[in-house]
Lab assay of single mutants.
Amino acid sequence: DEVTIHLGDKTIRVDGLDKELLEILKELARRGADEEELRKEIERWER
C-alpha cells in the first residue's frame, strides 16, 4: 500500500505504512509538523 501525505505544497509518499503510524503522521501534520519531522517519525517506526 502506498500512502501519499500532502503537506501544504509538499507531498510525501510512503510504502506500507502501519495504520497507527499513519494516524500519528496525520496528527503531526495537522499540528504543522514539517516534512523533516514526519520523516523522522517514520524512521523511528521502521526500526
Rank of each mutant, 00 (worst) to 15 (best):
D1M: 12
D1T: 13
D1V: 11
E2K: 09
E2M: 13
E2V: 13
V3R: 08
V3S: 13
T4Q: 12
T4H: 15
T4P: 07
L7W: 06
L7K: 02
L7A: 09
G8S: 13
G8K: 09
G8Q: 11
G8H: 09
D9R: 02
D9N: 11
K10C: 05
K10R: 09
K10I: 14
T11S: 14
I12N: 03
I12L: 06
I12F: 01
R13E: 09
R13M: 09
R13I: 12
R13K: 14
V14A: 09
V14E: 03
G16A: 10
G16S: 10
L17W: 10
D18S: 15
K19Y: 10
K19M: 09
K19Q: 12
K19A: 11
K19L: 13
E20Q: 14
E20S: 12
E20W: 08
E20A: 13
L21G: 01
L21I: 06
L21K: 03
L22Y: 08
E23C: 02
E23K: 10
I24E: 02
I24V: 11
I24S: 04
I24P: 00
L25C: 02
K26H: 13
K26V: 10
K26D: 06
E27I: 05
E27F: 01
L28H: 03
L28N: 01
L28I: 04
L28W: 01
L28R: 03
L28Y: 01
A29S: 06
A29M: 14
A29L: 14
A29C: 08
A29R: 08
R30Q: 12
R31D: 10
R31M: 14
R31S: 14
R31P: 01
G32V: 01
G32M: 01
G32Y: 01
G32A: 01
A33P: 00
A33S: 04
A33Y: 09
A33N: 02
D34T: 15
D34C: 03
D34Q: 10
E35R: 04
E35F: 12
E35C: 04
E35M: 11
E35Q: 07
E36G: 11
E37G: 04
E37I: 09
E37Q: 12
L38V: 12
L38Y: 04
L38N: 00
R39E: 03
R39K: 09
K40P: 00
K40D: 06
K40N: 09
E41Q: 09
E41W: 08
E41N: 04
E41S: 05
I42S: 01
I42F: 03
E43A: 02
E43S: 02
E43C: 02
R44G: 11
R44P: 00
R44E: 14
R44M: 08
R44C: 08
R44W: 15
W45M: 07
W45D: 01
E46S: 02
R47Q: 15
R47I: 12
R47Y: 04
